[in-house]
Each structure stands twice: as C-alpha cells, then as structure tokens.
Amino acid sequence: MDISLLNVIKLLLALLAIIVLLVLNSVVMVWLERKAAGFVQRRPGPYVVGPHGLLQTVADSVKLLAKQIVLPGSSDRLLFLSAPVLAMFPMFLIFLVIPYGPWLTGLEVNLGLLLILAFTGLETLAVIAGGWASNNKYSLIGAARCVSQSVAYEIPLILALLALAFMCGSLDLTVITEAQSGWVWRWNIFRQPLAFFIFVITCFGETNRAPFDLPEGESELTGGYHTEYSGMGFALFFMAEYTSMMLVSFLAAVLFFGGSNGPFINGFWWTFLKMGLFMTFMIWVRWTFPRVRFDQLLNINWKWLLPLGLLNLWVTAVVLKLF
C-alpha cells in the first residue's frame, strides 16, 4: 500500500465515518433492544421521549455524559479509567477492513479476516483491566470468567472461519464476498452450514451476550466487570458491547450471507440489511433464554464445538482436494 496524501485522507475520512457509524449504531440498537424486549414481554417499551421512544437513547446518553465517574476506593486509577477506552478503541480499526459494498471499504488488506480475529481479542483485555482495576470481587469474577470464555470461544470461531478461508482460498474479505456472488445458494451459509452453526454460537460467546453473558451475569455478579462503572465509563462498555455485536453481525453478513450480494441490485444496502437482521436475531435470543452455567459453557465449547469445527475443517479439506 502506498502512503500517498490521497490514501491518508481517504483513511481519515473512513475512520470518521466509522466513528459516526458506531455511535449511531449504539443509539439505534439500544432503542431497538429495549423496544424488542418490550414487544416480546408484551409491554410498549420506551414510549415517551420522541415518537415511540426513538429519542430515549439520546436522552440517556446525555444523562450518562453528565454523570460523575465514581472512582471506587483503592482502585487502580489509570487502569480503571483506561479500560473503557481500551474496550472501544480497537473497534475502530476492525471496521476499516470490512467490505460494506463493492466500492466501500476503508482499507483493503488481503489479511482482513486475520486482522479482525486478532483485534477482537483486545476487548477481553479491556474487560480484564476493568474488572481488576475496580477492586471489586464481583468485577474480578466477571473478568476471570470473560478470559476463560473468550479463550474457549475463539478457537472454534477460528476453526469455523478457517474452513471458509480454505474454500475461498483467501483471508481477504473482498475475495470471500466475491466468491459468494451470483445467486443465493452460492452464499456460504448453504455451502458451510456447520461452520455457520459454530459461528452463531461463538458469536454469542464472543460478544458476551445472553445466553453466554456470564461476565456480566447480573443475577449472580450484579453487573460483573462493569459493576463499579458509572457515567461515561459504563456508557463506553455498553457501546463496546453493541459495537462488538455489530462487528459479528457484519462478519455474519459478509462471510455467510454473501455480503453486498443480494437477490437483486447488489450494493452496500444488502450488507447493512443483513447486519440488522442478524442483530435483531441476537436481541431476540437474548430475551428468550436463561443463562448457561459456567462449566456448561466450557463444555459446549471444548466438547462439542471444537470437535465439530475440526470435523468441518477436515471435511472441507477433503472435499476441496477431491473436487
């Protein structure tokens, strides 16, 4: 990649657009989550601020911005304050490499998938930092859970995505998208259903969403790693959760649902539509299931998903070799 002025300007513009996207996403998704939860539970959800509560999240974020950040006694100041930033910051870079549409990618790299997988691990670091620095036992347990959970889930996730990379012969997300162009049954979800199954389950584990929201686990750990956070610190952790949700939804759209390839008129709108649908699915799941226990979570992963992922990888390799 040549470093010309044009490229730098393009990169900066892309980063700016991504920041706007992430903030907008959090605002909209929090509203959607509350509204969907309301409908599922047969209540109206946010209703008062704005039409059908659309501005509720804006009002909430103003409140969170204005609130004092309470530092718990004998906490690690630097870590405590930097953890939320650390949770949010790597996300900006990840969104650079996602091909939203044929002409819409912040930064085209041929190792996009690898970059994404590498950077998603950073969020775990932020959770550990936050949980440790809070000097709170609930936070500590939450952070410890988060570490073993993400270690456990990243391996099947990588195995599942590796099968895709085998099939497309590339780690470049643009290439993977192009390989799915044509018609709907060329989407990877039909060609790699097992990989998709593993991917969906690991998504919930990676994003710490129910039924795998053990690091937060409010009925056991009150708030888990963000028990002590208030104001903007809490808001950033919250944003990070929705951002990682959006990330896995974009990944699902690009890797399994053909990205910008639609049934008709290809374009970036398909990516966003698929992303939105996948996020709605995640919300729907959250408001349906109880939480799994911690040992069960590890069992699901090490005893079922890991062998399944290996099997899938092996079958893919054999099939590719034979045909």
Binding site: Q41, T288, R291
Partner: peptide, 16 residues
C-alpha cells in the same frame, strides 16, 4: 426463579 437463572422475559409473562 427463571430470572435468577438469567432469563428475563418469563417474569413479565408471570406478571400477566
């Protein structure tokens, strides 16, 4: 009880 186990929705059905 289901809320203790992490499922939030049933308690609101129970309230109905």
């Amino acid at each position: 009880f289901v809320m203790d186990l992490g499922g939030f929705t049933p308690i609101l059905y129970a309230f109905e």
